[in-house]
Simulated scan of single mutants.
Amino acid sequence: MQQTLTLYSTWGCHLCEQAEQLLQQAGLEGQFQVTDIVDDEQAFARYRLMIPVLRRGDNELCWPFDADRLATWLKDVK
């Protein structure tokens, strides 16, 4: 079973919007959830200076990343 992809983000973050667009362009629409770090104390403490961060299980992909890096990371964490 494949673990959920989570994009840690926050409202008004243009980098987070770019990361979400990359996920959509990669054909992952509906296959990831966006978590606003403001709504999650642990995520806020961990990611507040790092967002956007894409996470699957214990694996994280921190910004900056592009479509090629995203594709490589996705293959590595399946």
Results as ranks from 00 to 15, higher is better:
Leu5Arg: 05
Glu17Cys: 00
Val53Thr: 09
Asp58Ser: 13
Thr6Met: 02
Ala45Glu: 11
Ala43Thr: 03
Gln31Tyr: 04
Tyr8His: 12
Gly12Ala: 13
Tyr47Ala: 10
Leu23Arg: 03
Gln33Asp: 14
Cys13Asp: 05
Val53Phe: 06
Val53Trp: 09
Ala45Asp: 14
Asp39Pro: 04
Glu41Pro: 07
Cys13Trp: 03
Asp76Ile: 01
Asn59Gln: 15
Tyr8Phe: 15
Asp76Arg: 13
Ser9Leu: 08
Tyr8Asp: 07
Gln2Arg: 14
Asp66Tyr: 03
Gln42Arg: 12
Leu74Gln: 04
Met1Ser: 14
Phe32Val: 08
Phe32Ala: 02
Arg48Leu: 02
Trp11Arg: 14
Leu74Val: 09
Trp11His: 13
Ile51Pro: 00
Gln42Tyr: 05
Arg69Ser: 12
Gln24Glu: 14
Phe65Ile: 09
Glu60Ser: 15
Gln33Val: 14
Glu29Ala: 15
Lys78Pro: 00
Gln25Trp: 08
Arg56Met: 06
Gly30Leu: 01
Thr10Tyr: 06
Arg56Leu: 01
Gln2Lys: 15
Leu61His: 08
Asp66Ser: 08
Trp11Val: 12
Arg46Trp: 08
Tyr47Lys: 00
Lys78Asp: 07
Glu60Asn: 15
Cys16Pro: 05
Arg55Ser: 11
Arg48Ala: 05
Arg46Gln: 15
Asp68Thr: 12
Glu29Arg: 09
Gly57Phe: 06
Leu7Gln: 05
Cys13Leu: 03
Ala26Tyr: 00
Gln2Tyr: 07
His14Leu: 08
Leu61Asp: 06
Ala43Tyr: 01
Cys13Gln: 10
Leu23Gln: 00
Glu41Arg: 08
Cys13His: 02
Thr6His: 03
Gln18Phe: 04
Gly12Thr: 01
Glu17Thr: 12
Val77Pro: 01
Gln33Pro: 01
Leu22Met: 13
Trp11Glu: 13
Pro52Lys: 05
Thr35Trp: 09
Gln24Met: 12
Trp11Thr: 15
Gln25Arg: 13
Leu49Gln: 03
Ala45His: 02
Asn59Leu: 11
Ile37Glu: 01
Ala67His: 08
Gly57Arg: 05
Gln21Phe: 00
